[in-house]
Design a protein around this nucleic acid. Structure first.
Lengths: 222, 222
DNA sequence: TGTTCAATGTCGCAA
DNA sequence: TTGCGACGTTGAACA
């Protein structure tokens, strides 16, 4: 196999699994690694079967494909030397995956339970806009002082960096002078905690299951 | 299918492709999307076939699997109602993918064309070492003033942060006082540009094809 | 359609 | 093992 596009890549001859999906995309999997194929072509793309000329045939190629991406023009060229098994089936349209417990769920719950951030505080708004992107939650504590909250599923250093940038910027706003930061996550890595506290940012560990328990009553999906 | 781990996820009954790899991992693909499966379990993990009790059988389940991650304990439960096709083959060990990247190219090209950064400047060195990692390019402009260049294929906020850290550190070196920063990329995101300019870092958009055109002619890998 | 951000990210390298 | 950055990231939400 040979790929030309954002980079060039070559895959030597070996036994592999090719999955050609209904949308035209092609995946080339080995027997290890994670879910990521060794190589692939994403939709929208087109698969053309090439003619096997004498040169290819004498090299032992029984089938040759050229998969072209419709927009970028990236190409994947596949030369098949032996077909061990070949199965085709129409899967139809998939009903899709239902998820529960991602960052959006955390944000929604914490917006309803801002007392967890600071007793007696109230929500200003979710996705409070700034020039460098929205802050997850903007709230005001019982005394009316502003607090910017950054929410992550897993709290790592880059999340602290992100919140620091917001605080730097927001702190220049006369209406938000003295703004504090709270870094909230289901799990906070030690390094992230150290960095946050060094910058005067409070860390808050969230218990998703418990928060869901005192949810205002939006039913779970399944 | 049901997944429990970092989050909970459920996949309704439908026709799908299950790929069970030699390392024990399992992928569940639909007929669309990109290379990412609807759901999966990464290695190291173990697949156990569950006994089909009366309840499962009466629900139409012919086979049930429980895939457990060895370290995290995440589980994937699969209930199979019909097997349309089933193929097994040992692929052996894969020779692996050979890549030839673009970002390294960009750095090499810009090192040869530092005039693009500042007219009349000259290269000090590539991968200029600092305590927190190497700066992509260190150059001196026509007047001899130092410039640190960070190169990315796509310029985003992280890259600006990285360059900022370098500049903070390098600026303490008496030989490099007054050092300037240049953020160079094929494409610079608006937010990254705002942040860079706010910090006095100049942005430079690189035309890879054009730069390759005036390349000195080092051949590619294959 | 383009931009931005999360992700069960995954992957690879180096300390 | 852990941290850190890149990825042909992919995917989803929103302007």
């Amino acid at each position: 196999m040979d790929y030309t596009g954002r980079l060039n890549a070559h895959l030597p001859l070996a036994t592999r699994v090719l999955m050609h999906k209904g949308d035209g995309s092609l995946l080339i999997h080995s027997d290890g690694g994670s879910y990521k194929p060794l190589n692939w072509m994403s939709p929208p793309c087109r698969l053309d079967k090439l003619q096997i000329d004498e040169e290819l045939a004498s090299a032992g190629v029984v089938e040759a494909w050229k998969v072209t991406h419709q927009k970028t023009g990236d190409t994947l060229t596949v030369r098949i030397h032996e077909i061990i098994a070949d199965t085709t089936h129409d899967l139809g349209i998939d009903p899709g995956l239902i998820k529960d417990g991602v960052e959006a769920d955390l944000q929604r719950l914490l917006a309803e339970q801002v007392d967890l951030v600071s007793e007696g505080s109230s929500l200003v708004r979710r996705e409070y806009p700034t020039a460098i992107g929205p802050v997850d939650l903007m709230i005001r504590d019982a005394a009316g002082a502003p607090i910017a909250v950054e929410i992550k599923r897993r709290g790592e250093i880059d999340g602290v960096e992100q919140l620091t940038r917001y605080l730097d910027l927001l702190g220049r706003d006369p209406l938000l002078t003295g703004i504090r930061g709270v870094f909230a996550a289901q799990e906070i890595k030690p390094q992230a905690r150290v960095l946050a506290e060094d910058r005067g940012i409070e860390c808050l560990v969230l218990d998703y299951e418990r928060m869901k328990g005192i949810d205002s009553g939006v039913p779970t999906l399944f």
